[in-house]
Design a protein around this nucleic acid. Structure first.
Lengths: 155, 155
DNA sequence: ATAGTTGCAAAAGCTTTGCAGTATG
DNA sequence: CATACTGCAAAGCTTTTGCAACTAT
């Protein structure tokens, strides 16, 4: 599934969303699917406001309230991940059908790179050994600075 | 130094703060040292507002603006670390003289545990290998849920 | 003396909430 | 046709900013 095209991934995400909404007796409104589509056909690491603006530009009129509400649901459904990279801004990222990964964030220009490392699993499992707990998610963020002046242009 | 008493650590933190302020030609105001003292003699993982309230309760009157300003400086001086544990709140933690560690955060009750793992260093070094970058800090956060109802009481 | 700091209050930025109207099941 | 959902605007929270008054050097 990780080799699917963008539209394949969108389709699978929609199917998942549909079935979870049905299971939970939530309504399958056009707004919810339009938001999911906007997210899955576009770039990763976005904030709520940019998503709002982008949908307005695409002539799809949704309110901010619906954006926030739907993002909450999508996170709950494991279709979207919520991140915080140290600047008091919440960023989101499509996640269903994409491999788990971690982030390297430049504190100067905000550029975000992704990486994976198998060894992390062992660390996390060992660390979280405590009765009555279950791991929901793990975030490993590496914050860097560019050594050159023109940080933004380098990436 | 990691075996020093709280007051020893405070003293060393004050010395460091003093010398960095002098080096940068910043003023050594009583407010700045009062805030440092409040932080170093108290519990870890606090937010700006609680610090503000606590100082007011201790009859030390500082403005919120000074709290935020001083926290910025303390972070810059490596005397305090800034954290975000996924709930849009910035938490701070005294750090000078305390071993580096990572966090396990219960998403239900907010309880925070700390852990260390030597193996992480290798992962971080391998991940961040890119010219013109330098690592400022690394945050590994494990988010959990309690499986029991009375989550808060269990910890 | 002078410029860095403080305090206060206003403003900014992001997110949540209340409510009237709408549309899904 | 009942009620979950949407849109809008207001409110809430945390953090930042502007400016006059103060004080460390």
């Amino acid at each position: 599934m990780e080799n699917d095209s963008l539209t394949d991934k969108l389709k699978k995400a929609k199917d998942r969303f549909k079935s979870i909404l049905e299971k939970n007796k939530n309504r399958k409104t056009p707004e919810r699917f339009a938001i999911l589509e906007e997210i899955y056909l576009n770039q990763t690491h976005f904030d709520a406001e940019s998503l709002y603006i982008k949908m307005k530009q695409n002539s799809y009129r949704v309110s901010r309230a619906t954006i926030y509400n739907t993002l909450d649901i999508l996170v709950e459904c494991d279709l979207v991940m919520r991140h915080q990279f140290g600047n008091n801004k919440t960023l989101y990222e499509k996640s269903y059908g994409f491999p788990e990964h971690h982030h390297i964030v430049c504190e100067q220009c905000g550029y975000i790179r992704e990486f994976t490392d198998e060894r992390l699993n062992g660390i996390v499992e060992d660390a979280a050994q405590l009765p009555n707990n279950e791991i929901n998610r793990t975030a490993l963020n590496i914050y860097t600075s560019c050594l050159d002046q023109d940080c933004v242009n380098l990436h």
